[in-house]
Simulated assay, not measured.
Amino acid sequence: MPPDALILGFDTSAAHCAAALLRGDTLLAMAEEPMAKGQAERLIPLLEEVLAAGGHGWGDLTALAVGTGPGNFTGVRIAVAAARGLSMGLGIPAIGVTTLEARAHGLPRPLVVAEDARRGAFYVQTFGPDTPARLAEDIPPGPQHPAVFPIAEAIARVASLRDPSGRPAPFYLRGADAAPPSDPPPVMLDVG
């Protein structure tokens, strides 16, 4: 990625709609709105607001950066689908970044990142040299560090360090909460 790349990062993997516009290492604009639902309707207008606040338009972008989860099943799908569609329409790459990578960005290593997965569970990932993946109950407690950057800014910063090839894909660690209907499907009758 060029050092002065203009990257629009965004995330809807949790109870928020977040976006940040980054040129190189400089944050130009950012917004994050807490919301339990409504991300699908709010995301594109929020992205347009962040672009305008940063003094740019869609055609100025070098790349998109999107949060791929883990997180809310529907929220992850909203952001990833938007990134893929915008990428195709604008002819620029979309780069996927996990929530755990974004939370770890800028923190000292080795590091263990734990994110609330609700229902008494956590998503856990280790980062840094000589830190193999381990079960959460085997990880010794250590100092706690808050994330250095807000989520959308961190996603854009991580993406700026990546090869822009490939397509973002949802990163799910468990299935959707919704279940298919238990009613039998309708039966088609031939009345001819």
Rank of each mutant, 00 (worst) to 15 (best):
M1I: 11
P3Y: 03
P3T: 08
D4W: 01
A5L: 01
L6W: 01
I7A: 01
L8A: 03
L8H: 04
G9V: 02
G9E: 02
F10P: 01
D11F: 09
T12R: 06
T12I: 10
C17L: 09
C17H: 05
A18R: 03
A19L: 07
A20V: 03
G24P: 04
D25L: 15
T26K: 12
L27M: 14
L27I: 12
L27C: 15
A29E: 10
M30Y: 12
E33S: 13
P34M: 12
M35Q: 15
G38D: 14
Q39G: 11
Q39K: 10
E41C: 11
E41N: 12
I44H: 09
L46M: 15
L47T: 07
L47R: 08
L47F: 13
E48C: 07
E48Y: 01
E48I: 08
V50Q: 05
L51D: 13
L51K: 11
L51I: 12
A52I: 07
G54I: 05
G55A: 11
G59I: 06
G59E: 13
G59N: 14
L64S: 04
V66N: 02
G67Y: 04
T68Y: 04
G69K: 03
P70Q: 08
N72S: 13
F73W: 14
F73S: 08
T74I: 10
T74R: 08
T74S: 14
G75C: 12
V76Q: 05
V76H: 04
R77I: 10
A79Y: 06
A79M: 08
A81Q: 10
L86S: 09
L86Q: 10
S87H: 08
S87A: 15
M88H: 15
G91P: 11
I92R: 14
I92V: 15
I92Y: 10
A94K: 07
I95L: 11
I95H: 05
I95N: 02
G96I: 03
T98G: 05
L100R: 01
A102F: 02
R103T: 12
A104I: 05
G106I: 02
P110S: 10
V112P: 04
R119H: 14
A121D: 15
V124A: 06
Q125M: 12
T126E: 13
T126L: 11
T126Y: 03
F127V: 04
F127A: 06
P129H: 08
P129Y: 02
P129N: 09
P132E: 00
R134S: 10
D138H: 04
I139L: 15
I139G: 06
P140Q: 02
P140R: 01
P140G: 02
P141Y: 02
P141S: 08
P141R: 06
P143C: 03
P143Y: 03
H145C: 08
P146I: 02
A147D: 04
V148K: 14
V148F: 07
V148T: 13
F149E: 07
P150K: 01
I151P: 00
E153K: 00
I155Y: 00
R157M: 02
A159G: 01
R162M: 13
P164W: 04
G166P: 00
P168T: 00
P170G: 05
L173E: 08
R174C: 06
G175Y: 05
A176K: 01
A176V: 07
A178N: 09
P180I: 07
P184S: 15
P185F: 05
P185M: 07
P185I: 08
P186M: 11
V187R: 14
L189K: 13
D190P: 11
D190M: 09
V191C: 13
